[in-house]
Design a protein around this nucleic acid. Sequence first.
DNA 1: ACCTGAACACCGTTCAAGT
DNA 2: ACCTGAACACCGTTCAAGT
Lengths: 243, 243
Amino acid sequence: MANDDSPERARSAARPAREPLSRDHIIDAAIASVDERGLPALTMRSLGQRLGVEAMSLYRYVNGREDLLEGMVGRLVQELRVDPRGDEHFPTDGWQAYLQSLAVGARRLAHAHPSLFPLIATRHPSAPWLRPPLRSLEVVEDFLVALISRGLSDESAVAAYRAFSSFLLGHLLLEVATLGASTAPVEETLDEGDAEVPDNDLPLSDFPQTQRLQPLLEADHADAEFELALEHLLDRLDALVSQ
Amino acid sequence: MANDDSPERARSAARPAREPLSRDHIIDAAIASVDERGLPALTMRSLGQRLGVEAMSLYRYVNGREDLLEGMVGRLVQELRVDPRGDEHFPTDGWQAYLQSLAVGARRLAHAHPSLFPLIATRHPSAPWLRPPLRSLEVVEDFLVALISRGLSDESAVAAYRAFSSFLLGHLLLEVATLGASTAPVEETLDEGDAEVPDNDLPLSDFPQTQRLQPLLEADHADAEFELALEHLLDRLDALVSQ
DNA sequence: ACCTGAACACCGTTCAAGT
DNA sequence: ACCTGAACACCGTTCAAGT
């Protein structure tokens, strides 16, 4: 409620405004940077600049670039947590409802951070049984608690974790990859240089079926496709559970 | 049939043996390098060294590092081609058999190049309707021809392409990611520096369900899981086709 | 025609030194 | 305690120059 003109604020604004450095703050800035400018543009130096600091200062809070990336992935994955006891939108309706809410959350995350989702998908998990994109102990624990408390057996819950991970990874990475093609930071269309790059852009007419079906192939059913595949997965799990 | 002691061979071996440079040869070497030493170790300079040449020479054949990566992905994806007319192992048995052979081929590719598969999975496809990992015109054309010639409608064939891509991507990337954890080039375990990295390795005992189910979670069923999920996908497509 | 030396701009990272 | 200047080793890439 402090007035913007309060002396404290005015004084601190005298030198370039900058919040105190911290690991959390650095990770926030890094995520924002990648969202805005893509992963290759994230540099220790550029990140320092964004924070009003020299690059070397970051090393007090972050063990190098790799550790920074790990921190970013960790932070994003935490956003996947859904109260396993259910909330106002998805009460304790059954495990299907829980998986549904987790799925839409993961999809929202992927869409919100298309340049970062590949990182979540491909960086080596810290334990071999932590499967992307549900790659944190907290998220896995929530998952297991939610399903077991809703009546699934241990084996079913673990099988569901496996199947659900693959499902999310495949669908969301695919959405993000094709979506990324248009969203990607516009790398100025470099005009081919003079290397003898093979004419990889063969005329589409050499591929008659592909050409003929192009309208079908181009149609974007991402939403419906995701919903449908999720329903099928739930059906499959349902068969597994009640057998 | 030439004898190893033939004068030609002896003479060419006088200076450091090196095959003539070419785009194909460079791409081969790059793939071998990544398979052996991981992606980060692939450098224009290191690649030049492996080819007995200075880094700058590569630029005559390759439009920079990005183009090189694209070339590598392109080459690998071509290995996915399966004769759509069937071969001795999988004659014209029906579209299920074709998809099965394509699936095992893709899985073999992923296992043969675990460090490269993430590249196939995440690089932006050149056309929005080319979906990883089946991201080349040749492979897609084969796919469509195979399925349509086996009786599928246009719509079913395209729907199958979509579902099949997601399936492969999810399962194979997941296998490779967890597998990669153990296979990855042993980055000497850097001991944490002195940055205030949060104690992310919480004791597993804070996650009782996860801890209790760890044996189940750790069990590696990759083979069976893949087979089973593939069967379910084929069933699902079968229902779609014959409706 | 094919390769290289030299150079440029830009990385990640370390460490002694500043405040 | 927190940040920085200076430096190091290493990138990708260009281009004039060599053979």
